Amino acid sequence: MLPTPCHVIGDVHLGVASAESERRLLRHLRALPDQARSLIIMGDLFDFWFAWRHVMPRTGFRVLAALADLAEQQIPVVWIGGNHDCWGGEALRAETGAHYTLEPWRGLIGPWDALRPHGDGLREVEDAPYRRLRRVLRHPWSIAAYSWLHPDFATRLAHASSKTSRKGRARDGGAGLLAVGTAALSSAGGPRLAVHGHSHVPTLVPAGHGIYANAGAWYLDHQYLRLEDDRIARMQTHDDGTASTVVQLERPR
């Protein structure tokens, strides 16, 4: 179980995010021990990440250090791997102390029964071609072959090939993932809170028998979710380091 208050951030895309966006994230992470007791990263913290045997990308070095500091302060971090940062879980776990997983994470956040996949490949029809490609990209043979590329070339190649999957918002306005979340929330034995990333569309609405939430894309909106025992809020950060509530919902009883 993750303790509350819990902050949820998603889709930071370090590597293409602006320097100001990264500074805001660092400020948020460094202040987090005074504001929350756990953190969830909903995937795509990096626009590209790969763990070679003896080197690691320099992008986001200070962010990784800030996550490691949270672990040292006994702030648990759950990191759901996305479609941009899915190659290097063991290195990320070792360097940051985060619980990194590529599997949909279901568990308790305080009293909330929550389901949290990143969101890629979940739409039944629209994402069918991507699911086939994902099996290839995440196959051990593909990963082994990619590891032979020089990191500079491999990084340029990855950035060039991933432009469409990070550009702005989902073309359906997030409706596809909302439908997936609503189906889970409406099912027998389903969760009471469904959280996705991936669509880059900040959302917090009642759905099914619970609540559907998406923190949006940090690099576009600088928003996050804040869960307390009795409520969940979508929060907006500001230039001066403060945050305000965009919308808030009470936990379903």
Rank of each mutant, 00 (worst) to 15 (best):
G97S: 09
L122M: 05
Y130D: 14
P129C: 12
W105F: 09
R131C: 04
L108V: 02
A98D: 09
L102W: 03
V125Q: 11
G110V: 04
H99R: 07
H118T: 06
E103C: 06
L133W: 11
A94S: 15
R116H: 13
R116Y: 11
T96L: 05
A98H: 00
G97A: 09
P104H: 09
R131S: 00
R123F: 03
P111S: 01
L102K: 07
L108C: 00
L108N: 04
R134G: 01
G119H: 12
L115R: 13
G97I: 07
R123Q: 15
L115F: 14
R123S: 14
L115W: 15
G121N: 06
E126A: 14
R123D: 14
G107M: 05
L108W: 14
R134A: 04
R131A: 02
W112P: 00
G121E: 03
E95I: 13
P104D: 01
P111D: 02
A94C: 15
L122C: 04
E103L: 09
A98P: 02
T101W: 12
D127V: 01
G119Q: 06
P111R: 13
A94L: 13
G107W: 03
W105L: 03
L108P: 00
A128V: 02
A128R: 14
E103T: 08
A114I: 03
H99C: 07
W105V: 05
H99Y: 07
Y130V: 12
I109A: 06
I109M: 14
T101C: 10
Y100D: 02
H99W: 06
R135G: 08
G107H: 02
L108E: 09
D113C: 07
R134Y: 03
L108A: 02
V125Y: 08
L122T: 00
R135N: 08
L102I: 11
R135Y: 10
D120Q: 14
E126Q: 13
D113Y: 06
W105C: 02
H99T: 12
I109L: 14
T101S: 15
G119K: 12
G119D: 05
G119N: 10
G97T: 03
G107F: 01
E126G: 06
E126Y: 15
G119E: 05
P111M: 07
T96M: 02
T96A: 01
W105S: 03
E126S: 13
D127Q: 11
Y100R: 06
A98W: 00
V125R: 15
P117E: 01
